[in-house]
């Protein structure tokens, strides 16, 4: 079942198969968690949001009419986007003021404990946290959740070319932030690839 095409998998989920939904969960959980964590910066909050997203997906997939994988991914991330909007409104939290982000950077250590603990990666995550909300959102969708520009355009309700332009600018912003932090190409082997 792990190798089933998405459409066939969705048919089984629609008929009530928990096993099929588990396969769907395995395919999507990290991608959704990464995007949620990019916004919340709290693992528990991100996991709660992902859990609610999957529960809503289970209910919503009955009415979802499959046309393409991209459209389905857009559908799933739209559910998460609504959860994030609700999350922000409930917490009355501004989505990422710089001071708040800096205060919560310490939480990242927990995540970085999972990824290779390179000093450069710490700097990269710190630089990511300092990006604007718009840049973080599109970078997390594209480089953490692996969405195509077409899928990103669907989630953000913008054109595909606008998504590409926004992503290009976000990468430039991240590069400038890293350089400003002192990660240049000469004193860090990893940074040389910037």
């Amino acid at each position: 079942m792990e190798d089933l095409p998405l459409q066939a998998l969705l048919e089984r989920v629609r008929s009530g198969s928990h096993d099929a939904f588990r396969v769907l969960f395995d395919r999507l959980n990290d991608r959704l968690f990464a995007h949620a964590y990019a916004h919340t910066k709290e693992r528990e909050s991100a996991k709660d949001l992902v859990q609610e997203t999957f529960i809503d997906l289970w209910r919503g997939v009955e009415s979802f009419s499959y046309r393409s994988d991209q459209e389905f991914h857009g559908f799933v991330f739209l559910i998460l986007k609504r959860k994030l909007t609700k999350y922000y409104s409930e917490r009355k939290r501004a989505p990422g003021s710089l001071d708040q982000r800096m205060e919560e950077v310490g939480d990242r250590d927990e995540t970085l404990a999972i990824v290779p603990e390179y000093e450069y990666h710490r700097g990269l995550m710190k630089g990511f946290d300092q990006l604007s909300e718009t840049s973080r959102e599109i970078l997390s969708l594209r480089n953490w959740s692996d969405l195509s520009f077409k899928e990103i355009a669907h989630v953000l309700d913008i054109s595909e070319s606008a998504a590409k332009v926004r992503h290009h600018r976000a990468i430039g912003e991240l590069r400038d932030t890293l350089i400003a932090q002192g990660y240049d190409r000469t004193d860090n082997p990893t940074a040389k690839r910037i």
Binding site: D30, F33, R43, K47, L124, R142
Partner: peptide, 23 residues
């Protein structure tokens, strides 16, 4: 590009026990 690859490598992931708990 390289920066994107580096960014992808630090994508937050769930630990296996976290994943099972979430499921």
């Amino acid at each position: 590009n390289d920066l994107e690859r580096q960014l992808h490598s630090i994508a937050p992931k769930l630990a296996s026990e976290e994943r099972e708990s979430l499921w």
